[in-house]
């Protein structure tokens, strides 16, 4: 590939006490690419997210950001690079309105007073609120009054405020209904068009197949195959997740096929 990946993980290992959570994990995400990270419970998906976001730095291995080696040992270092993450619980303030939540911690002030007008305008300029047509007609309603899908949009807008190059979405469709999920998948397409690299962590292979370019399977803390979404049958991904095809030859082949 001509341009280096936005993020490349090389031989990442992470240990929690006696538990080897990750071992020699590889992963590459390019700009404008949606990579799905799948795996059974305890496969190390969340740990990998924590490694990337600096919450739980890697013990071994190298991280490359746009081709140059970097160290991510604190959350704010990840943010400074341009990594944003939307967690499963969204972490929104119930009583604040949409604009308040999007700008929380990064309020725009004028002469020491909150500049609500500028914030509201910029919130609208993110144009996700409109293009998604998630029905957030009014950016001044408290988040309590929003549906799960709308809340998710707010959380993603919040993550996009810092103009990240890599967006990590942790189990984004877990709490969504069918139509909300459809809208959400539209949103991911939209992000891809904007050239943002997306790492999508999901259990739902249907969603993954619908939107991802590439699937990386984790099993018991190791890579267990990289698959091209268009050409790989779902059964093969599932067997890779569950360990039915747990051997080095298959996932090397798959890896080469992708490259």
């Amino acid at each position: 590939m001509s341009t280096p990946p936005v993020l490349a993980l090389r031989g990442i290992s992470r240990r929690f006490g006696a538990v080897q959570a990750l071992r020699d994990v590889e992963l590459e995400i390019h700009a404008g690419e949606v990579v799905a990270l799948v795996g059974d419970n305890g496969a190390g998906k969340s740990t990998l997210v924590k490694v990337i976001t600096g919450v739980a730095p890697a013990d071994e291995g190298a991280i490359e950001w746009e081709g140059r080696p970097v160290r991510i040992s604190r959350p704010h270092e990840a943010r400074a690079l341009g990594i944003a993450c939307v967690y499963q619980d969204l972490a929104l303030c119930e009583s604040l309105d949409v604009v308040g939540n999007i700008f929380l911690g990064h309020e725009i002030c004028r002469a020491g007073v909150l500049d609500e007008v500028s914030m509201e305008r910029r919130a609208r300029e993110l144009d996700l609120l409109d293009t998604l047509s998630t029905g957030i007609a009014n950016v001044r309603v408290p988040v309590t009054a929003l549906s799960a899908g709308q809340r998710q949009t707010v959380a993603i807008c919040r993550a996009l405020l810092s103009r990240p190059k890599l967006l990590i979405l942790d189990e984004p469709t877990a709490a969504l209904g069918v139509s909300q999920t459809a809208r959400f998948l539209d949103l991911i397409e939209h992000l891809r068009e904007r050239g943002i690299g997306v790492l999508l962590i999901s259990h739902n292979l249907g969603d993954v197949k619908a939107v991802a370019d590439e699937v990386a399977v984790l099993r018991l803390g190791r890579n267990n195959g990289f698959f091209d979404v268009l050409t790989t049958p779902q059964e093969q991904i599932i067997s890779s997740m569950t360990g039915a095809t747990d051997n080095a030859v298959t996932h090397r082949k798959a890896w080469e096929a992708v490259r």
């Binding site: 704010h76 967690y87 619980d89 972490a91 929104l92 303030c93 119930e94 009583s95 604040l96 308040g100 939540n101 929380l104 911690g105 990064h106 309020e107 002030c109 020491g112 007073v113 909150l114 988040v143």
Partner: peptide
Amino acid sequence: RRTSYGRKIFSIGGGVEAARRAGI
């Protein structure tokens, strides 16, 4: 209501975890 200090106070009441992750 109109300063970033007040906004932070409200945010802690609305969700401590969210406030913490926002760097407050």
